[in-house]
């Protein structure tokens, strides 16, 4: 069985408003799936549903062969679904490495080995110079990298990236894009929300487009870029997606 995630008719209503409505899709192992859509399309809600931070109003989620609908976020993290937060949520009174250790404890039970592993991950994302720094000294760009490091330190099967490029310089964007594209080869399936569209268009194996809570496209990046409905959703004008 190669499907890692199956989502069936997923919906979440806030009062009378459906933020996500009737979304169905599946993700295969080793995919790098882009998730795009205009502001307010429901991307964050969809992430929160997948990660267990919100309970769905209806629909089912199957992850790694288990029905996980309505599970708590910490259960999801334990079975291998990691996420980043769009607005970084560091543990403010801990150092950079300690922030990552909290995630690596999931697989490394001793403080020593959790730390060793956390330092490896920090090197991966280019935070080696900041290992013992207080997390409050990091810039926004570095905090985004810390989010990535914390997600990967869980050694997840699936990671949900939420705008990890925002605030990065073009060089950093290129480096991060390169890094993310290596993840499927390491056995980590990726779903990736990003406003820096060219990064997604370049690396994603497939792109899903969310608009007003519904999936309006789900195809290869090139095909999505030509999709009339997608173009209309983005300000109603043609934009350069390549």
């Amino acid at each position: 069985m190669t499907e890692l995630v199956q989502v069936e008719n997923l919906g979440r209503a806030f009062d009378a408003l459906w933020a996500v409505n009737g979304v169905s899709f599946s993700v295969e192992r080793g995919e790098l799936l882009g998730l795009i859509g205009p502001n307010g399309a429901g991307k964050s809600t969809l992430y929160n549903l997948l990660a267990g931070a919100l309970a769905p109003t209806r629909g089912e989620i199957v992850f790694d062969g288990q029905r996980v609908t309505g599970w708590k976020p910490y259960h999801m993290a334990r079975v291998g679904m990691a996420r980043t937060f769009q607005i970084p949520k560091p543990y403010r009174r801990l150092s950079v490495v300690e922030n990552v250790m909290l995630a690596s404890f999931q697989r490394h039970r001793s403080v020593r080995s959790a730390r060793v592993f956390a330092e490896e991950i920090l090197a991966d994302v280019g935070l080696s110079d900041h290992v013992t720094a207080p997390v409050t000294t990091l810039t926004v760009g570095l905090l985004k990298r810390l989010e990535v490091a914390r997600a990967l330190a869980l050694e997840p099967k699936l990671v949900l990236f939420d705008e990890i490029m925002a605030g990065l310089t073009p060089t950093e964007v290129a480096a991060m894009t390169g890094f993310v594209s290596t993840l499927p080869a390491r056995g980590i399936t990726v779903i990736w929300v990003e406003h820096v569209l060219h990064a997604i268009m370049k690396t994603a194996t497939r792109v899903m487009v969310l608009d007003r809570g519904q999936l309006i496209a789900n195809d290869a990046p090139k095909a999505v870029a030509r999709d009339a409905a997608v173009i209309k959703a983005y300000f109603g004008e043609e934009i350069s997606l390549a």
Partner: peptide, 14 residues
């Protein structure tokens, strides 16, 4: 510390 500093991040870390 995690539960103190950020509940959501703690949850996301299992």
């Amino acid at each position: 510390f995690a539960a103190r500093d950020d509940e959501d991040a703690a949850s996301a870390a299992g």
